[in-house]
Each structure stands twice: as structure tokens, then as C-alpha cells.
């Protein structure tokens, strides 16, 4: 009898806990901050927030990437984080008149680091998608890439429609999982691109889907990378942008302005050519 009571108490406690948690965010519209419905007179008038002032007064913009995504953001031999994303961040900070603080964190930590205010923006090759737009705002894209299927050259696979029922490796958290599922394949989730390249070479997965540029870089770095080939065309085009909190409208507008300048005056193209063998990935 005592045991039953104990279980009951546990369940009741869990219900109370979940209700308490739910109660904290009863008004999703308010939380999303994208809708000025006049409930709160102090916020009703216009898109005024202190996000841009906050950055300017601090004299530093803190952005984050995984630090494990060459050639976009990764650690070089001196243990400095470098790459296309980092250079883009440097240029943005320069035009804002502040310092860049490029932090790295496991991909898992990025969303909540942004949402809780640890970072001003995610600048780590994050692709815009519908689901993410419910949680964050994206700036204008700073580069374009896409999902590419890679297979072993000797596998006989030449196009994406041959992957049905096969196993495709994808990095955990990347949008490419849906592409793999779209091909009717079994998805296997790995920690990083290099891990999947090895698994593919070892024949433990039949293919992998990742960003085309990341794949090119990985295949050129890894031993026996020439045994791997692209199969078919890009599965989908992706637009990469900085993610900011939804209420940080002023910051996002300023970042948009800066990015458009950088697109227009060729700065972004220049950074791209530096990191991608002369290729300009900042145009569609």
C-alpha cells in the first residue's frame, strides 16, 4: 500500500512541476515578440528595443559558432578560431565600431545560449528554416550553399534516387536529415563530418549528406578522400544567416544594413574567395 502511495505522490509532484513550468510562458505571442498587439502599452508604439545600444555600449559583439565546421569556423594550428564565418564577423564588428568576440560551443548549446542572452547572435553557418523562424529572427543571408549527397566512387551509386532503403550519415542537428529522409534512406546521426567521412570510407554507411563546401573541404583533407564522389546535383539550396533573438529588432536591422553593404561593395565576395579557393558563395 505504501508503495502505491509513493508512486502517486511522484506522479502528482511531476504534474505540479510541469504545470508550473507551463504557467511561466502562458502567452506565446508575447514571448515571440513579433506581434505588437497593444496588450502592453510600453511596447506597443514601435519596434524600439535596446539591442543595438546594448552592443554599442558594451563595445563588443558576442557571436557564436560550433568551432567544428571547417572552412567556416574551426580551430587552426595555433588554436585560434578562424574561417569564413569568423572573417565575416570581424568585418561586421568593424563596421559596427565594436570588437568581435567569437565564442564557440557545441552546436547543442547555441540555441539556448542565444535565447538566454549569452550571445548576441549565432554566426555559425546556420541555415534559415521555417521551424527556426518560430524561435529566432534571421538576418539577410550572407552566403548560399546546399545539401550534397556523397558516396564511395566504387559503390555504383550515381544519383540521389538510388538511396532508397540505404543508410545515410548526417551530422546531428543539421537540416540535412530531412533531405536524407526525403530520399527514403535510413538516417544515421553522427557528431561531425570527419567521423562520417571515415564511416563512409569504411563502408559502414552508404552515403552522407552535408553542405557541399564542407564536403569539398573534408574530402580534400582526409586520407583516401579521392575514393569519394558527389552523387547527383544539389538536393536543396540553403541560405545561411545570422540568428538573433526575435525581440532584438534594432540589432537585426543594423546587421541587415551592414550585410547588404558588404554584399554590394564586394567585401563578402572577397572573404569568400579567400576561404573557398576563389569561389564566390555569397551570390545565389
Amino acid at each position: 500500500m505504501l508503495k502505491k502511495k509513493g508512486l502517486l505522490i511522484t506522479i502528482v509532484l511531476m504534474l505540479i512541476l510541469s504545470l508550473a513550468l507551463v504557467g511561466c510562458t502562458e502567452d506565446p505571442a508575447e514571448e515571440n515578440g513579433n506581434d505588437v498587439n497593444g496588450d502592453d502599452p510600453s511596447e506597443a508604439a514601435e519596434d524600439v528595443d535596446d539591442s543595438l545600444d546594448r552592443v554599442l555600449e558594451a563595445g563588443v559583439i558576442t557571436v557564436v559558432g560550433s568551432g567544428d565546421y571547417p572552412p567556416f569556423n574551426f580551430y587552426d594550428d595555433n588554436d585560434d578560431v578562424v574561417g569564413f564565418d569568423v572573417d565575416t564577423g570581424e568585418e561586421i564588428a568593424k563596421r559596427l565600431g565594436v570588437e568581435l568576440n567569437y565564442e564557440t560551443s557545441a552546436w547543442d548549446g547555441l540555441p539556448d545560449g542565444l535565447r538566454t542572452g549569452r550571445y548576441d547572435a549565432i554566426l555559425g553557418s546556420m541555415a534559415i528554416n521555417e521551424e527556426r523562424l518560430k524561435i529566432v529572427s534571421f538576418t539577410t543571408p550572407y552566403y548560399y550553399s546546399g545539401a550534397q549527397l556523397i558516396v564511395r566512387a566504387d559503390s555504383g551509386i550515381t544519383d540521389t534516387d538510388q538511396m532508397e532503403g540505404k543508410e545515410i550519415g548526417v551530422v546531428t542537428g543539421e537540416t540535412f536529415m530531412e533531405d536524407a529522409e526525403g530520399l527514403g534512406a535510413e538516417v544515421v546521426l553522427y557528431e561531425g563530418v570527419n567521423q562520417i567521412l571515415l564511416e563512409l570510407l569504411n563502408g559502414r554507411v552508404d552515403g552522407m549528406i552535408t553542405d557541399r563546401l564542407v564536403a569539398l573541404n573534408g574530402m580534400s583533407q582526409i586520407a583516401d578522400g579521392d575514393e569519394l564522389v558527389f552523387a547527383g546535383d544539389l538536393l536543396r539550396l540553403e541560405e545561411m544567416a545570422l540568428a538573433v533573438r526575435q525581440e532584438d529588432n534594432e540589432l537585426r536591422e543594423k546587421l541587415d544594413e551592414i550585410l547588404e553593404e558588404m554584399h554590394a561593395d564586394g567585401t563578402l565576395a572577397e572573404i569568400s574567395k579567400k576561404w573557398h579557393d576563389g569561389e564566390d558563395i555569397t551570390i545565389k
Binding site: T172, G173, T175
Partner: peptide
């Protein structure tokens, strides 16, 4: 960590896709 899609890996996948990581961990 060895690509077995059990609870934690599923949370990490869904959470980084929809950016509601903490909610998925809960």
C-alpha cells in the same frame, strides 16, 4: 556518441533543428 538514435541523440537532433533545445531536454 556512436550514432545510436536513443533518447538523448533524438533530443539533440530535434532541438537543433527547431532551436528548442532546452525544451527537448526536458
Amino acid at each position: 556518441a556512436i550514432a545510436v538514435r536513443e533518447l538523448l541523440l533524438t533530443a539533440r537532433q530535434i532541438g537543433s533543428s527547431n532551436l528548442m533545445m532546452l525544451e527537448m531536454f526536458v
